[in-house]
C-alpha cells in the first residue's frame, strides 16, 4: 500500500502503569488509517511488549477505548487523518481508571459501580408465567429505549470530571443503565435502585457538564438519563415514590 505522505507519524504512547512515561514511535502513514491500526503496527512491528486491548475492531464492542490527544475515543473508529495534530498523535490509557499496563486499564471499578447503582435486571416471573406485556410506544419504554444501547466501553466514565473529583461518584454509564431499568416495568428492585442512585455520590452530584453526552460513541445521552433520575429521586425524597418511601 503506498503511503499517503512521506512523513511518518510521530506517535507518543504511554508506557508503564500509574508511573511511567510517553515513548515516541515512528509509524508509516497510510490512507484510511485508524488509531487502532497505529497501535497494532507498533506492537507487531516495533515493540511487542506494548499492552493494549481490542476485539471486534469494527465499532461494536468498545474494548479499544483509549485517550487519543486527550479525548476518550474508540480507536478502531477514529481515523488518524481526522485527529492528527500536524504529524503527531498522543495515545494514553482511559482516564479515571487505574492503569494495569500501558494502554490497558482496570475496568473493575467501572463495573462495580454498575452493580452499585443496581444497574442489573431482576424480575419476578419465571418461564412458567406468560410473557410480560410491555407496550413499545409507552412513555416508559421509549425512555428506556433511548439509553439501552450502552455497551459499557467506559468512554463517558473516562471523560467525566465529577468522577475525577468525587472518586465514589457512580458515573454516567452506571446511572444511565439505572435509569433505563427504572423505566423497565418488569423490574422489581425499583426502591433499592432509587436508594442506590440517591446517595452522596449519586445522580445529584452531576453538574451537566455534558462531556459524557458529547463523547459517547453510541450517541447516548447520560445527561438526559441522569436528569430523569434527579427528578425521580427528588420527588421520592419529598413525596415518596410509587414504589415506596426513599
Amino acid at each position: 500500500m503506498t503511503p499517503m505522505s512521506n512523513t511518518d507519524l510521530k506517535v507518543k504512547v504511554w508506557r508503564g502503569a500509574e508511573q511511567g512515561e510517553f515513548v515516541e514511535y515512528l509509524v508509516p502513514r497510510n490512507p484510511n488509517q485508524t488509531v487502532l491500526d497505529v497501535v497494532t503496527y507498533i506492537q507487531r512491528k516495533i515493540d511487542p511488549t506494548l499492552s493494549y486491548r481490542f476485539a471486534c475492531r469494527v465499532g461494536m464492542c468498545g474494548s479499544c477505548a483509549m485517550t487519543v490527544n486527550g479525548v476518550a475515543r474508540w480507536t478502531c473508529r477514529t481515523h488518524v487523518s481526522k485527529i492528527v495534530e500536524g504529524d503527531s498523535l498522543e495515545i494514553a490509557p482511559l482516564n479515571n481508571l487505574p492503569v494495569i499496563k500501558d494502554l490497558a486499564t482496570d475496568m473493575r471499578e467501572f463495573f462495580n459501580k454498575w452493580k452499585g447503582a443496581v444497574g442489573f435486571f431482576k424480575g419476578n416471573q419465571t418461564r412458567h408465567d406468560d410473557f410480560a406485556k410491555v407496550e413499545p410506544q409507552s412513555e416508559e419504554r421509549q425512555l428506556a429505549n433511548a439509553g439501552i444501547e450502552c455497551i459499557g466501553c467506559g468512554v463517558c466514565y473516562a471523560s467525566c470530571e465529577v468522577v475525577k473529583s468525587r472518586p465514589n461518584y457512580l458515573g454516567p454509564a452506571a446511572l444511565n443503565r439505572a435509569w433505563t431499568l427504572t423505566n423497565d416495568v418488569r423490574d422489581v428492585q425499583q426502591l433499592d435502585r432509587l436508594r442506590a442512585v440517591a446517595g452522596d455520590e449519586g445522580c445529584h452530584a452531576c453538574h451537566s457538564h455534558g462531556s459524557c453526552t458529547e463523547r459517547c460513541p453510541n450517541a447516548l445521552s447520560p445527561t438526559a438519563s441522569i436528569s430523569g433520575l434527579k427528578k425521580l429521586v427528588a420527588r421520592a425524597a419529598v413525596r415518596g415514590s410509587k414504589w415506596g418511601k426513599l
Partner: peptide, 25 residues
C-alpha cells in the same frame, strides 16, 4: 518517570463544558 496523564483541558474543550465553567465561575 512521571505520573500517568489525567483529564486535562483537551477533554473539556467543548461548548457545554464552557457553559458550565462560566456558570460556576
Amino acid at each position: 518517570m512521571s505520573s500517568r496523564p489525567t483529564l486535562d483541558y483537551r477533554a473539556k474543550s467543548h461548548l457545554p463544558y464552557f457553559a458550565y465553567a462560566c456558570h460556576r465561575f
